[in-house]
Each structure stands twice: as C-alpha cells, then as structure tokens.
Design a protein around this nucleic acid. Structure first.
Length: 258
DNA sequence: GCTGAACGCTACCTGTTTAG
DNA sequence: CTAAACAGGTAGCGTTCAGC
C-alpha cells in the first residue's frame, strides 16, 4: 500500500496544494493573456497602456543576472563605488582584487582574478572589517539586494514597474536570516531590515526603476507603503474561462481560503 | 594537464512549531 | 498573539578529484 491508499486520500494535487509559488505561477499564467494584464492593471488603479516594452516576470532577479553579464572588473568597481556609499570605499577599491574580496568576505578562498559577486559577500566575515554601523548596514542592504527575487514584477516599460509580493500564510520577511547574523545585528544594536524596504531599495535606488509595490494576501491588512489586495480579488479582476480546469481548481482553493 | 561531476558552503525562499 | 527557531526546498560559487 502506498501512502495515498493507506490514508484513503488521493485527490488530484491541484485540489489540495498549499504551495505559494504554484499560486503565484498561476497568476503569472493568467496575466500572460494580454487582455487580462490590461484588466488587472486598470482594476488595481494603474492607468497605463501596454506598450512594446511591457513584460511580466516570474521570480525577478534582474540585478543578479545583470552582474553575471559584466565582464570587466573596472565596471564592477564603478558600480560599487557609485552605489555603496560607505567611508573609504575608494581606498578599498584601489587595493588588489584579492584584498577587496577579502574585505567583503566570501566563502572559500578569495579570488585574485575577479571581483566576487556581492550576493555572496558574507556578513559574518565582513562584520569585523566595518565597525561603523551605518557602513555595515549599507553593505548588508547592497549584498542582500543581489539575492532577493520578487515573486512577480510587471514592467510597464524599462523605467516603470509594479512589484507584487505574494504571501500564502507568512508575513513580511526580515533580514538577516541566520542565527549568527541576527546575533551580530543585536550586538551592534541594529534593527532588522524588512523585505519590502529592501525591494524598494533594489528596484529604485540600485536599478533606477520607478516602482509601485503590491502585497497579495488572504486577509486584507493595511500598509502605508503598499497597495494590498487579496488572492480572491486578484483572480476576480481577470478572465479565467480559457484556463485549464486544474488551474481553476487551484484558483478556487486560494480564493476560498480567506 | 584539462575538464566536468560531486560536494561543501552560504545564501535565498517558504511554512510550521515553539517560546515568551 | 507575535517573534524566533526550525525544517526543508533550490541555487550559485569555489574546490576537489577522477577520468580522459
């Protein structure tokens, strides 16, 4: 006997899925019908028409993938010099690559050949190299920005976007994530950084994209910085009659959950 | 000697359980 | 009731080592 037989339960998984990413993926699929995208934007209060630079993304990691496109180390240094506004950044960047990598701390041996990916900078390692709290938190926010992936990002054009953070049950996430890092923050007396604040910093200050932010949740909460809509509302804004039955099952699940 | 698979590490994400 | 700790999934990077 398999587990489904023992339990006497073998529904199609679509009837019982509790996977947040799955529901976000279905919303993405629904929005891929152009009429739906337009409808959704209008209902959410964005009076913009869809043009040729309009793109919808699932799991948006622009900063990460842009970095991997950069070949020369001087450009990477220029990015850090301009965007990581900490004391003595010029002194740091004028050192050999290996010394720069050592300063920010990475897993394994610091490379002598290239400037290592800021997303891999290690808080526990650079903690001792930057005693000033303002500098320290700037480096943390910069580093985290390379790792975060908003669930769904709608680019109206290259310079304007809507960022949707979908939640199943958990609330807004906070950084840092690990015990060791949290202890470092507590010892320094620094408060944690919210997921939304970090997304804003990443989209607007680092990428230079003017962005509106939306929270997609079960139960309406209030937010001063974000438009909040429920899953049920989101799916009520669009036409799903062309979608396959199994997606309708899942839309049913999530719309009735609240 | 070179290449690629496997592995360890550190990070992200999520939801669940527990402690206060 | 909330926050922290826990658990379990994925990914990128660098190192190691077997096989050519």
């Amino acid at each position: 006997m398999n587990i489904r037989e023992i339990a006497g339960l073998s529904p199609n998984y679509s009837k019982i899925s509790r996977e947040e990413r799955n529901y976000a993926a279905i919303l993405f699929a629904v929005l891929c019908f152009p009429d739906n995208a337009q409808r959704f934007l209008t209902k959410c209060g964005f009076n913009k028409d869809i043009n040729s630079d309009f793109v919808i993304y699932f799991e948006y990691a622009y900063l990460r993938d842009l970095w991997s496109k950069i070949q020369d180390e001087e450009t990477k240094k220029r990015i850090i010099r301009n965007k990581l506004k900490i004391n003595n950044i010029d002194d740091i960047l004028n050192q050999p690559l290996k010394e720069i990598n050592k300063k920010f701390g990475v897993g394994g041996e610091p490379s002598s050949d290239f400037l290592q990916y800021p997303g891999k900078w290690s808080i526990a390692k650079y903690n001792n190299n930057f005693l000033d709290n303002d500098d320290f938190i700037k480096i943390c926010k910069f580093k985290w920005s390379f790792n975060i992936k908003p669930d769904i990002v709608i680019h109206l054009d290259k310079d304007h976007a809507i960022c949707i953070e979908a939640k199943y049950e958990s609330g807004e996430g906070f950084y840092p994530g690990t015990d060791v890092e949290k202890k470092i923050f507590k010892d320094r007396g620094i408060i944690y950084v919210g997921q939304m604040e970090l997304q804003k910093y990443m989209m607007q200050e680092l990428l230079g994209v003017k962005t509106d932010f939306m929270f997609l949740v079960f139960n309406k909460e209030t937010s001063t910085t974000h438009k909040v809509i429920s899953w049920a509302e989101a799916f009520s804004f669009v036409k799903i009659d062309q979608m396959p039955e199994f997606t309708k099952d899942m839309i049913d699940n999530i719309s009735k959950r609240a």
